[in-house]
């Protein structure tokens, strides 16, 4: 009974916060509402014996990725009047309709019937069991993620750095590092 109550509270909080992420004009408020959604989902993860994933969700997602978003929103310092009149006003209505149709299609695909969850051993979803899976069965994909992260860091630095004045017109000669 308490489990159901927790599910419904977390689900409703997640949906309301997600709606506000999409409709709010102020980007800072959107980021904060997305953090609320992420924490509500972490509560659901805890109920599904995924303790480590719930902790990761809060530390990495709400803690690191969302702070990056917040940092960029504040760095760009967008004003509210930044976004003037809608050039394509019907596009907003059409987008909402497309999303609603997508949801209706998803729901129509769900079959009935009760599904019993498998009996899981003690420690399912703990740091220990996830670690054993990551460094055993999923060793190769795990190593590939390090490559992905290095590529992402390099790409972010290269794309976002300010070009020095002598690089703007001419392409830099190979091997020379411009001032960032």
């Amino acid at each position: 009974m308490a489990d159901q109550f927790i599910f419904w509270v977390a689900a409703i909080v997640a949906i309301i916060a997600a709606i506000r992420v999409v409709i709010l004009k102020n980007a800072v408020l959107s980021v904060l509402h997305l953090i609320v959604t992420l924490i509500a989902l972490a509560v659901l993860f805890l109920q599904l014996s995924a303790e480590f994933i719930a902790a990761l969700q809060i530390i990495v997602y709400a803690g690191a990725i969302m702070v990056l978003f917040l940092f960029i929103v504040m760095l760009l310092n967008l004003r509210k009047d930044e976004f003037g009149r809608d050039q394509l006003p019907w596009l907003r209505l059409l987008g909402t309709l497309a999303g609603a149709a997508f949801l209706a299609e998803l729901i129509s695909l769900i079959g009935g019937g009760r599904v019993m969850a498998a009996t899981v051993p003690d420690g399912f979803g703990s740091v220990r069991s996830i670690g054993i899976a990551l460094f055993g069965e999923y060793m190769f994909p795990f190593e590939l993620t390090s490559l992905l992260l290095v590529a992402a860091v390099l790409a972010a630095v290269v794309v976002a750095r300010r070009k020095s004045s002598n690089e703007v017109d001419a392409a830099p000669p190979a091997g020379s590092e411009g001032e960032a």
Binding site: A14, I15, A18, I19, V21, V22, T37, G95, T96, A98, G99, A100, F102, L103, L106, I107
Partner: peptide, 9 residues
């Protein structure tokens, strides 16, 4: 599905 559709919207 609801969360995904909100993302799509």
């Amino acid at each position: 599905g609801i969360l995904f559709s909100l993302g799509v919207i």
